[in-house]
Write a protein that binds this DNA or RNA. Structure first.
Length: 123
RNA sequence: GCAGACGGAUGGCAAUCGCUUUGCUAUAUGUGCUUGCAAAGAGGAAAGUCCGAACUUUACCGGCGUAAAGAAAUUUGCGCCGAAAACGGUAGCAGGCAAUUCCUGCGGCUCGCGAGAGUAAAGGUGCGAACAGAGACGCUUUUGCCGGAAACGGCGAGAGUAUCCUCUUUUGAGGAUAAGUUUUUGCGGUAACGCAGAAAUUGAAACGGCUAAAUCCUUACCGGAAUGCAAGGCUGAAGAAUAGCCGCUUGACCGUUAAAAGCGAUUUUAACGGCAGAGAAAUGAUUGCGCUUCGGGAAACCGAAGACAGAAUUCGGUGUAUAAUCCGUCUGCUUUA
RNA sequence: GGGCCCGUAGCUCAGUCGGUAGAGCACCUCACUUUUAAUGAGGUUGUCGUGUGUUCGAGCCACACCGGGCUCA
């Protein structure tokens, strides 16, 4: 498997999966974004779901926000533990901040929650 | 040169890493929604959903044909069609289009010095606390002034204008001219209508005048109606859930050029080029280059900003938002030759 | 994506052929009471979401915008 790909199987798209993460997942929150995370032991894959309500902005702003968050997940998922289901919930501030700031806050949140692999495993 | 009118165009480029679809390829049932390569991948408004069509379905309406039932009237099924009903739409004339409330040309009125812009439009009845009037919707009640005992008769304003002249104390009366209105004649025009001419412009009036297809009725013309891809069709069979497949993208298609018809919208023919199809929903990130504007700087250069906005069955039209730049045609004024 | 509806006083709502915009609660003033509440009397409150148009006249009719909501698998 390629390191930076993002295929269909890595998307959350069933309501079943979303409900499980909403119910059982850990909540990490910042001014800019809210992250729900659930450790799914049955799977090796790390999967991502996106929630972007109309409060975030117009269709253009919502699409751009989702694409940026997907990009962050794609380029940094190799750092994460396997079997992790994530949901990124956007806020109005998410759309107004630029890509590098957004990347920084997302990675800091995930690191503080301890979802990174051990350094020995990374190698 | 300044000011303005109308119309049109553009809405950066490349590389790398990813994403979606399609084609080819590899592997051969392993997280196969896989591997590799190639091609294509948001707009002028994709938007609002204001119109119109394609396409879909029907316990809808009507007509025709046919089959069955019945003695018959008729009923039911199937097929085809949309002349009539119902319902809806349109309203200056002529044309264009698959179709329209769209587009083109022409005509009326208003605005503008002008290029141009805006706007309305068949007939009838008629609510009414706007107008004037003492009184308003036509007589059911009440009701002005003058004459009269009464019956009854008469009267102002409001629909007949403006200017000038004459007469009259005033009210008012008469005349002329102009405009409008009505009728009518001739000419032009397919027509809407225009141009020119003639005659009338009086009487009566509480039965005043004004006022509705962007709320009523009628007429003429057009369209069967309803339904909107969440329409609709199929597969599958309980670890089924927001399932999968089809519909689903090449068609009344779009663009450029040329020829022909036409004032034009547009049509016909030929050549070339182009055309996304997602589904928790594909266009992003990084870097470099380039353009415009602003700030700093002597310069090299450095920094910042660059609109409105995202396909969801498809297409046509309309009006709404839009940084910056460019182009064309035309009008008025000024200057110079 | 399609279809539909609503914006009227501080709040909840009426306003049905176009003719001076109303109700309840709230609020204000006065009376009663030592005071408050309750009660009684009186009163105020509106660019009818915004704009343009049709009309002699628009909350109502038409169109365009703005905001909010419902519904269809």
């Amino acid at each position: 498997m390629k390191q930076f790909s993002f295929s269909y199987r890595e998307k959350l798209h069933l309501q079943k999966d979303f409900k499980k993460v909403f119910k059982l997942g850990r909540r990490l929150e910042d001014k800019k974004i809210k992250i729900l995370a659930y450790k799914n032991d049955g799977l090796y894959l790390k999967r991502l779901g996106l929630v972007t309500s109309r409060k975030v902005g117009t269709a253009v702003e919502r699409n751009r926000t989702k694409r940026r968050l997907r990009e962050i997940f794609r380029t940094h998922k190799h750092l994460l533990e396997p079997g992790l289901d994530l949901i990124f919930i956007s806020k109005p501030q998410t759309a107004s901040s630029d890509y590098s700031d957004l990347k920084k806050t997302v990675l800091e949140l995930l690191e503080s929650a301890g979802f990174y692999k051990d350094k020995s495993e990374q190698l």
